[in-house]
Design a protein around this nucleic acid. Structure first.
Length: 533
DNA sequence: CTACAGTTGAAGCC
DNA sequence: GGCTTCAACTGTAG
């Protein structure tokens, strides 16, 4: 064979377990490994609320650049290189397919709506030109289409029912390369080297604002190895028992950003975990285990793929229609870590600086913004996370905001995280707060979660006057959470699910259930069951 | 139709 | 650390 093939990188920024790459390199004369830098994703947007582009905060941009540099150097070791272009990805790709006389185009399947639209443009063009397209599923363990089909055409809406539909995922491809086909003639196209963040126009951003997590496949595999070294820890992992206030040594693997960009193959990760499970006596299970975490990812990918308007309330059939508020002042206070609740504010500062916060920390601040305290639309919080998280992933981020706002998946809206006691139970001395909110570093631990309650003399001694050096609480949690709970109950009562408005019959049915609730409360049932025993 | 379970709530009790 | 109460949701399995 002496034709040209292309591997088009978007996510899947790795050499290992990359079926699109493997397919492309087989039987071609020249292999063209391409990545298109999208100015919309990379160029500074001065109007944005944080440093970064219109689409992404600076931490994730840097993570992407790290990943590209690492990919390029890996390709160079194999006698190839990354061909970096700049422009609108779909438009540019169609041009080079033609100009470089590509006969086989390979790229990893990407199930996000934005990507599907982009890829359709390219695939349609390629087909019209007689170019073969190969687009395997390797960003996820399973093909969402298969799961949805198995479930009768609808995505499963509970984790358990999802897991019941899955079997064993396909194994990773285990080929290693000593070399790859050389790159052919790229004509007059200007091939870029991976830019440094400063070259994109972010020159004056100080280094201390950057995330400690660096991108790239090499870093992903190092981090994986380090995480898996302690087999006992892997075998006993239970997500809900993790400590959200741990930051010097996070309670989780922090492999999520590497999975997001495909620096790490989920199949490789899965099979490493299974090897460990097989080598130890007992291990935890889904949903709480590490494999369980990978399956959560699959769950959200599947539901997101099978649900039109998944990232919106309106027009989203699985989303509760709630009359959320839009108080800009409260939103900004939350976003900037100025709510007056140190636990909430410290988390938001860590998010801004590191681009990563613990899962339970995400729960705390998401609950606070939406159903817990501020009653602000989950889409607003979603946007902030989408911008700031290095691991921000369309399906998972939207899925979790639906979850935390009790808009879908989870409906126990009366279970509200306290912005005071939730953090205190993990970190009674407030070391996490002291680190991310240095203004409170000398506040005695008795008051660090509620500095407004400290006597003025104590505030003076700590050099932190509430209302001057640190904000007063924007709402009173006690009353605000009660008010939110009431609004949620009203919201639920007026719409059963999705954009279907409750019929008179539904309302009546609900009412009669309320009337009977006394007789059928779980505690009563438990008592009865005990009595029978 | 009903029973049940649902990754991760808080506070108070022992 | 485990249990109960607080108030009371939903999708799914049967």
């Amino acid at each position: 064979m002496d034709s040209n093939a292309m591997i088009w990188f978007r996510k899947g920024l790795r050499i290992h377990d990359n079926p699109a790459l493997d397919h492309a390199r087989r039987g071609c004369k020249h292999l063209f490994p391409v990545f298109v830098l999208d100015p919309w994703y990379l160029d500074p947007d001065p109007a944005a609320f944080s440093p970064g582009s219109a689409r992404s905060g600076i931490n994730r941009i840097r993570f992407l650049l790290d990943s590209l540099a690492d990919l390029d150097s890996s390709l160079r070791r194999l006698g190839s290189r990354l061909l970096l272009l700049r422009g609108d990805p779909a438009t540019l790709l169609c041009r080079v397919l033609k100009d470089w006389n590509i006969k086989s185009l390979c790229f990893e399947f990407d199930s996000e709506p934005y990507s599907l639209a982009r890829d359709k443009q390219v695939t349609d063009f390629a087909s019209a030109c007689g170019i073969k397209v190969f687009s395997p599923v390797s960003h996820t363990l399973f093909n969402p289409t298969d799961i949805i089909e198995k479930n009768g055409g609808r995505p499963p809406l509970t984790y358990q029912s999802f897991v019941a539909l899955t079997g064993k995922p396909p194994p990773p491809i285990s080929v290693t390369y000593s070399e790859l086909p050389t790159v052919g003639d790229t004509g007059e196209y200007e091939l870029l080297t991976v830019p440094a963040i400063q070259e994109l126009g972010y020159g004056d951003i100080s280094q201390e604002e950057f995330s400690p997590f660096r991108g790239g496949e090499s870093e992903a595999l190092r981090r994986l190895k380090k995480s898996l070294k302690d087999k006992e820890w892997v075998a006993k992992f239970e997500k809900p028992k993790g400590d959200p206030s741990a930051f010097l040594k996070p309670a989780t693997t922090v492999l999520s950003p590497y999975l997001k960009f495909g620096c790490l193959s989920p199949r490789h990760f899965y099979h490493c975990l299974h090897d460990i499970y097989n080598s130890v006596g007992s291990h935890t299970s889904p949903p709480v285990s590490l494999v369980g975490q990978l399956l959560w990812r699959e769950f959200f990918y599947t539901v997101a793929f099978g649900t039109p308007n998944f990232d919106r309330m309106i027009g989203n059939k699985i989303c509760k229609q709630i009359p959320w508020g839009d108080n800009e002042e409260l939103l900004v206070a939350w976003r900037e870590g100025q709510t007056g609740y140190p636990w909430i504010d410290a988390i938001m500062i860590q998010l801004k600086k590191w681009g990563w916060i613990h899962h339970l920390a995400r729960h705390s601040v998401a609950c606070f913004l939406t159903r817990g305290d501020l009653f602000i639309h989950w889409e607003k919080g979603r946007d902030v996370f989408e911008r700031l998280l290095v691991d921000s992933d369309w399906a998972i981020n939207n899925g979790n905001w639906l979850w935390l706002s009790c808009s879908s998946f989870f409906y126990q809206y009366y279970q509200i995280y306290s912005p005071i006691s939730f953090g205190k139970k993990y970190d009674p001395d407030g070391n996490y707060i002291r680190h991310f909110l240095p203004v409170l570093k000398d506040m005695p631990k008795e008051y660090i979660y509620e500095p407004w309650s400290a006597p003025l003399s104590v505030q003076k001694k700590a050099k932190c006057i509430v209302g001057k050096d640190y904000p007063k609480p924007v709402v009173a949690h006690e009353t605000a959470s009660k008010e939110c709970r009431k609004k949620m109950a009203e919201g639920y009562a007026s719409n059963i699910s999705g954009n279907k408005v409750a019929s008179q019959k539904d309302v009546l049915r609900r009412k009669s259930q309320d009337d009977n609730s006394q007789a059928s409360s779980p505690s009563k049932i438990k008592q009865r069951r005990k009595a029978i025993k």
